[in-house]
Simulated scan of single mutants.
Amino acid sequence: MTDSDAVDDLEEQPPLLKEDPLVLERLRKDGEQVLAEVFAVHRERFWHLVTFRMDQRIAARVDADDVLQEAFVAACKRLQHFLRDENFTLFIWLRMIVAQTLVDVHRRHLGTEKRSVGREVSIRGNQYPQTTSVSLAAHLVASQTSVSKSVQRNEMGQTLAEAIEQMSALDQEAIALRHFEGLSNVEAAQVIGISVTAASNRYVRALSRLKEILEELNLDG
């Protein structure tokens, strides 16, 4: 992160997105049913989060739907924490639960390999596996029709991941949240914990840097 990045990120607080008071009232009366309704509305977005960020070493034996079910159970157990805090919308809070559940799944299934999952980065008190560069690389290479053979894809994916790894963790997250998870700028700002302006500036800079990387590797098509 450059000095200018730090100034941008610290100049304002992240947006305070509050849940609809009517939804909060319903949650207090019939929490699990309301959670189920909201979870169902956003299920496709959560599914994309899981499939995008899941370590490929466990993808063949872990079903994304099972991760989502585990996340929903965890959310039901922790609902009172959300109701006491209320600093997030229900969607953002549930997304954090899903992301943390995926971290837990990685730890369980990789066992003694868990150190090789990579470092973890803390964003607003939540731990995320430092595999965003690998996820970004895999999805970007998969979209390239010019890279057809499996061996070529793997080699290019590794090269691209190493290049993306040179970007800061927050820059990688900005691209992942906006471009691959489809979060709005305001939602991404709240997840990362920076102002809306800073989130927008960071995303633009990160996207520009990613474009340079793709051009250097002849993957800008």
Rank of each mutant, 00 (worst) to 15 (best):
L79T: 06
Q80L: 09
H81P: 01
H81Q: 15
L83V: 13
R84H: 12
D85W: 04
D85A: 06
F88C: 07
F88Q: 15
T89P: 11
T89W: 14
F91Y: 15
I92A: 07
I92N: 09
W93Q: 02
L94Q: 12
R95H: 05
R95I: 02
I97K: 10
V98H: 12
A99R: 07
Q100W: 14
L102D: 04
R107T: 10
H109Y: 09
H109I: 00
E113S: 13
K114Y: 10
K114V: 12
S116T: 01
G118C: 13
G118L: 02
E120N: 04
V121D: 03
I123R: 09
I123D: 01
N126F: 03
N126I: 05
N126D: 13
N126V: 08
P129H: 15
T131S: 11
T131I: 02
T132M: 13
T132P: 00
S133I: 04
S135M: 02
S135G: 03
L136V: 01
A137E: 10
A138I: 05
L140Y: 09
V141C: 01
S143E: 12
S148R: 05
K149S: 12
K149H: 11
S150P: 00
Q152T: 14
G157A: 15
T159N: 01
T159D: 00
A161V: 00
E162H: 08
Q166T: 11
S168A: 13
A169V: 06
Q172G: 06
Q172C: 12
Q172L: 02
Q172P: 00
E173W: 15
A174I: 07
I175G: 07
A176Q: 09
A176K: 05
L177K: 08
R178I: 11
E181L: 14
G182C: 07
L183E: 11
S184Y: 12
N185L: 12
A188F: 13
